[in-house]
Write a protein that binds this DNA or RNA. Structure first.
Ligand SMILES: NC(=O)c1ccc[n+]([C@@H]2O[C@H](COP(=O)([O-])OP(=O)(O)OC[C@H]3O[C@@H](n4cnc5c(N)ncnc54)[C@H](O)[C@@H]3O)[C@@H](O)[C@H]2O)c1
Ligand SMILES: NC(=O)c1ccc[n+]([C@@H]2O[C@H](COP(=O)([O-])OP(=O)(O)OC[C@H]3O[C@@H](n4cnc5c(N)ncnc54)[C@H](O)[C@@H]3O)[C@@H](O)[C@H]2O)c1
Lengths: 234, 234
DNA sequence: GTAGACTCGATCCATGGTTATCGATATAAA
DNA sequence: TTTATATCGATAACCATGGATCGAGTCTAC
């Protein structure tokens, strides 16, 4: 049997292109953002890493490091300007320029995402949905048209859509992804629990709810195992 | 001004209780599971880390390590039995024992989760929903009753519910969490983008969709910055 | 105006998850 | 039966992230 030499190559996602910010830090930035917007709404204009850290369950040093990636500069003793921080995070994340997106799979989850207006505050506007189900084609869900999948590639190209969201059943996800790639879509937000095969330059992020579920159920199961053992020990 | 000494203490989540498996490995297990179930459906009974790794974009060593945590043992040259692997993962994650759960916030997202029957294959059964909206109380969504929030604590206790899911707006999340804790709920799956304050022994997992969104939009923004620069260079 | 204290920013160290390596073993082919 | 080889399991090196430390600056209080 001939074994593909690629089997053992460390094929990370793409070739990383110098992340310049740790992935965990990037993931924490939205949390700071939410928190800071809250502060601003309360009329607070100034804050420090210590305070942020206390409220978010992080140590000050980490907060400071995370925020430094956005290019913000603080002042000793005073901390940071809340408004500037919010601005810095939004600019850094690209939330000032709206990304228009197509969503495929107007089912349970797809409908929920389509109805989430708040996304527009975070640089995301879902402009249309696609579905294979003839009963759904032509309908409007949360003010968004549901179109047949065949039109996706062409429309994406004409409208310069760069982001695609997949909320179809797992069996359909790969075919949908292929269609998106054909339409020139650059990044895919995938809610189906499958590994998508796409060209290297496509950015893919999986939102695997089952992963979280696994963590939760494992921890719960372990807890009950432990407390069971404690009972036995008594 | 007196500053709380706790500000700079490294307060991790709870006291970790010896994880015994790296969090990332734990999060990958469901992906193996999905993949293996697919294999089994195709009639494949035997597989190796190299093959799994190739299909899932991981290197064989990592696959092997991840799977070892489940206690499975493989055979040189042959690999693992697919059926045994599936069984091992399910047992390890506690997916054989169903966790019953309450969901609070029967809105867009909550409805989607309530309608996801497939969760029951992964050890999760949402048995009831709660909402503050009088228009929703008494309704049935996807065959689940929507009850007033006031009944949650009492019912959770009487039914021995250990898992709570929060899909309310962020402003309401903390109050809901408090209610859950009062009802003796052990673990919370939180979809609202806020940091919940709960007693130390409560397991909390945030499903922060905005984190993923941040990563995506940052990568997209960077890509366009880069390609812009390249153009300028020409 | 000056002393003191608090916070930022930068550098250094520790921890832990990922990757590479090596011996042992079982299968398949000769 | 023997030999070749692919895979497992374990160990060790590596690297990224998280946490600690220290100097410098600025605000506050006396
Ligand atoms: N709903 C949830 O709570 C939830 C939770 C975890 C994961 N997921 C995942 O999200 C995905 C969607 O879940 P859901 O509950 O919304 O499913 P769903 O069945 O409600 O919706 C799927 C939609 O996709 C459409 N579809 C099917 N094949 C298609 C194709 N080839 N092209 C275009 N559209 C197609 C269907 O018509 C349907 O409208 C699934 O992969 C599921 O595993 C959902
Ligand atoms: N829908 C999405 O796609 C999406 C995406 C990302 C994050 N989220 C987050 O998920 C959460 C829910 O989003 P959604 O779109 O479903 O919102 P939604 O407004 O559609 O639903 C919220 C539901 O919670 C109920 N509610 C409000 N206050 C309550 C309380 N105190 N007790 C009980 N129920 C209460 C409301 O009546 C409503 O039914 C939000 O925190 C949101 O930020 C949603």
């Amino acid at each position: 049997m001939v074994i593909d030499i690629n089997l053992s190559t460390p094929l990370r996602v793409g070739r990383q292109e110098a992340p310049s910010i740790p992935q965990p830090s990037l993931a924490r930035l939205p949390q700071y953002h939410h928190y800071l917007v809250d502060l601003a709404a309360k009329g607070i204009t100034q804050t420090t890493c210590s305070v942020i850290g206390r409220d978010l369950g992080l140590i000050p040093v980490q907060v400071r490091k995370d925020l430094q990636h956005t290019g913000i500069i603080g002042r000793p003793k005073t901390g940071y300007s809340v408004a500037e921080l919010i601005q810095a995070i939004e600019t850094f994340l690209g939330w000032n320029n709206i990304n228009e997106a197509f969503l495929v799979g107007a089912g349970n989850l797809g409908t929920a995402l389509l109805g989430h207006e708040r996304f527009s505050k975070f640089g995301l506007r879902i402009v249309a949905a696609f579905d294979r189900d003839p009963a759904k084609e032509g309908q409007w869900i949360h003010e968004k048209a549901v179109l047949p999948l065949e039109e996706l590639a062409d429309l994406a190209q004409r409208m310069s859509i760069h982001l695609g969201i997949i909320t179809t059943p797992p069996e359909a996800a790969q075919a949908v992804a292929d269609e998106m790639v054909k339409g020139g879509i650059q990044a895919i937000w995938n809610f189906a629990p499958v590994k998508l095969k796409v060209p290297e330059h496509i950015i893919v992020h999986n939102e695997d709810l089952y992963s979280t579920l696994a963590t939760l159920s494992w921890k719960l199961a372990r807890r009950f195992r432990v407390s069971l053992k404690e009972k036995e020990a008594v």
